[in-house]
């Protein structure tokens, strides 16, 4: 299975990094690794930075964290250019557009700076294939969103006793990450014959619309048992729709992502289950992979990181709570 392969790959990086640590100390060179997030103010990326810093500390590298306040290629490219001018030893970046960031990143590649993309990708996300003009990054390290969708499906199926109707509340088609979550969710639900997946509702990242859609779906399907919100606004909107319909606790809501506010939402029962990504892991593997490459190791072209399933009962436990994103 693909995810097993990825997990093994991750393990391989970890092992090789240990070896690399020794090598680096022998070389006595302090590497500078730049991390450019999609936006600087988001808890997801702040958490990713935390993981990256932990890795940098472990291997004795310096981490530079620079980015734009909004998720926008127009704002990200100047930051990237400035970083390239400083000639770091490696660049980790969450590209804000899979096409528009290709040319700017080529400049880094041309300057001999290795590029690794984290969270999001350029081109197809399949790197080092020798095909296309966007295969030059060494690796794509991100949550395996298909896996995340599958985990959401399994958690929801369990919560509703493996029967009833469910649907996906999604942002809009064409966003790679949320599309993959929906794909994984639907694929996994095929394993539960008692569950019917209704048509996906797209809400344009408008929680007001997501709430109304949930109410409308429920109006037609009184046996609705659950909703999967493919991102935070979709989930909060759907959860409010459930609340307005007076179905809290009856129609289960699964949210993707775990900002600090999710704790409250789980405790009040607004949201039943949250699928937390592991951004710190992404940051950690990002720095480790860069370091491994810089010390002459080969690294996998794709690494998928894992998820944690949170609910009311486990969210207070430290081993679960550690995956809540930093404020």
């Amino acid at each position: 299975m693909k995810k097993v392969a990825k997990a093994l790959a991750a393990l391989a990086v970890g092992v090789s990094v240990l070896a690399g640590t020794v090598a680096a100390q022998a070389q006595d060179k302090k590497f500078t690794i730049a991390l450019i997030p999609g936006l600087t103010t988001d808890g997801f990326y702040i958490t990713m930075r935390r993981g990256a810093e932990a890795a940098a500390k472990a291997v004795g590298a310096e981490l530079v964290f620079q980015g734009a306040p909004e998720f926008n290629p127009v704002l990200q490219v100047p930051v990237l250019d400035a970083i390239i001018a400083r000639k770091p030893d490696a660049i980790l970046i969450a590209p804000t557009d899979k096409v528009q960031l290709v040319e700017p990143l080529k400049k880094a590649h041309a300057a001999g700076i290795p590029v690794i993309t984290v969270d999001t990708f350029i081109g197809t996300g399949n790197y080092q294939t020798g095909a296309g003009d966007a295969d030059f990054p060494l690796s794509y390290i991100a949550s395996d969103n298909v896996l995340g969708g599958r985990m959401a499906a399994r958690a929801l199926a369990k919560a509703i006793g493996e029967k009833g109707k469910v649907y996906v509340s999604n942002v809009k088609p064409g966003i790679s990450t949320t599309d993959q979550r929906e794909e994984g969710f639907k694929a996994e639900m095929k394993n539960f014959p008692g569950i019917e997946v209704l048509e996906t509702q797209f809400n344009d990242n408008d929680s007001n619309k997501a709430a109304s859609q949930m109410q409308s779906v429920f109006a037609r399907n009184s046996d609705l048992a659950g909703v999967f919100g493919a991102n935070l606004f979709s989930a909060l909107g759907a959860a409010n729709g459930v609340q307005q319909a007076g179905q809290t606790g009856k129609v289960r809501v699964v949210a993707f992502d775990a900002p600090p506010s999710i704790v409250d939402n789980l405790k009040t029962g607004l949201v039943d289950i949250a699928i937390a990504q592991h951004p710190a892991e992404i940051g950690f593997f990002g720095v480790m992979s860069a370091f491994a490459h810089l010390t002459g190791q080969s690294i996998p072209t794709a690494i998928g990181t894992g998820f944690t399933v949170m609910d009311k009962d486990n969210v207070a436990k430290p081993e679960i709570a550690q995956f809540i994103y930093t404020d």
């Binding site: 988001d42 808890g43 935070l232 409010n240």
Partner: peptide, 25 residues
């Protein structure tokens, strides 16, 4: 937009106030 994003720190700002929640729902 910029000010709102800066104040919100790029994320949602949860409110925990039972009266406020009752007003909304």
């Amino acid at each position: 937009r910029g000010v709102a994003f800066l104040l919100a720190g790029g994320t949602t700002v949860p409110v925990s106030n039972s009266w406020f929640a009752a007003l909304g729902n």
